[in-house]
Amino acid sequence: MQPTESTPTLKKNKEKSNYYGLLFASPWILGLMLFYAFPLLSSVYFSFTSYSILQPGNFVGLQNYKDLMNDDLFWKSIYNTVYFAVFFVPLSIIFGIALAMVLNIKVKGMAVYRTVFFLPTLVPHIALAVLWMWLLNPGFGLVNGMLHSIGIEGPAWLGSETWSKPSLVFMSLWGIGQAIVIYLAGLADIPQDYYDASDVDGANWFQKIRTITLPLLTPVIFFNLVMGVIGAFQQFTLPYALTKGQGSPANSMTFYVMYLYDNGFKFFKMGYASAMAWILFVIIMVLTAIIFWSSKRWVHYQGK
């Protein structure tokens, strides 16, 4: 028999291993504490103060939150953000699944088509904003030019209070290539045996989609739904670049994070902006919790 290490030796080796583990993880731990934990806890305190970048401010309790409840632009930004989320998230799921199913067809050269649909996600949002500002220009834009050729007078798009947010939804749908890739991975994970069995039973393509594809794709839909809701409520770069930070016309493009940014870095009302940040955090947490709670009823995992 080979000799075994004694209990004190094993304990000493374990302590040594833990020491080296903490030593190598210490840069990450320090970074987490310095750049995440400290700012996070600081923002909680600042949300109860009149702190600005230029002055330390005073403790004001819940005054920032009370002022937000009476701020018309605050409620306007919430409306704009919810409007975008309500339309963009479901449409991104519908179009994402539909395009993924088309791109999942086994035909020659499909890899090229998949690449083409993914390419818009690689375009920086600033470049994307400039591109669509030209396309949706009411005077000489390509979109209105095409509509005019078939006898339809195109709207002002980004210059219209009615059409500005639908325009932004349309632009955002152009860049759902990343979600399409995730849906393609989910489709590839569905066993072919299910489709073969449905062929034996005489199921048509619609019945296959309704009873096989969509139920087994629900875990991927669930993931994209959560990420889509979080991303929609954090919409910032595209509307900010399109309106040059003005949120025009008539604040119809002033989104929540844009107004938060303006308060923090334009008006130097850091306490006010911190209060807005924590309200946004609570809203996203509540919506995410509701989605997780409802997922028990509609998300189906293979083997369960």
Rank of each mutant, 00 (worst) to 15 (best):
Q302D: 13
V257P: 00
A197Y: 08
Y195E: 11
W163K: 02
T49N: 05
P27L: 09
G247H: 00
S92R: 01
M133I: 11
S50H: 04
P27I: 03
T115R: 15
Y113L: 15
S42Q: 15
T121E: 02
L40W: 05
N204G: 05
T121W: 14
S198V: 09
M146K: 03
K11L: 12
L122T: 15
P191T: 10
V82S: 06
I182V: 12
G139I: 14
F84H: 05
A273M: 00
N80M: 06
L135P: 06
F267H: 12
A179L: 07
M110S: 04
Q235W: 01
Y195W: 11
N64M: 03
I221E: 05
A250R: 14
L216F: 10
Y240P: 00
E5D: 14
F292H: 13
P239C: 07
Q302W: 06
H125E: 14
F46D: 08
L158K: 00
S43R: 06
L30C: 09
G151M: 12
W278C: 00
Q207V: 13
P249S: 10
Y79L: 08
L158C: 07
S295N: 01
H300G: 05
P215M: 11
F117G: 01
R114Q: 11
V60K: 11
F233T: 01
F95R: 07
W205L: 12
W298C: 00
D67L: 13
K266V: 13
F38S: 10
L23E: 11
L62Q: 09
T237M: 12
V200R: 13
T237Y: 12
G228A: 10
I221R: 04
N251R: 09
M276G: 02
F88G: 01
F236W: 04
M146E: 03
S77C: 05
Q63V: 06
S50D: 07
Y45D: 07
K11I: 15
V169Y: 06
S92C: 02
N137L: 09
S294W: 11
Q235I: 14
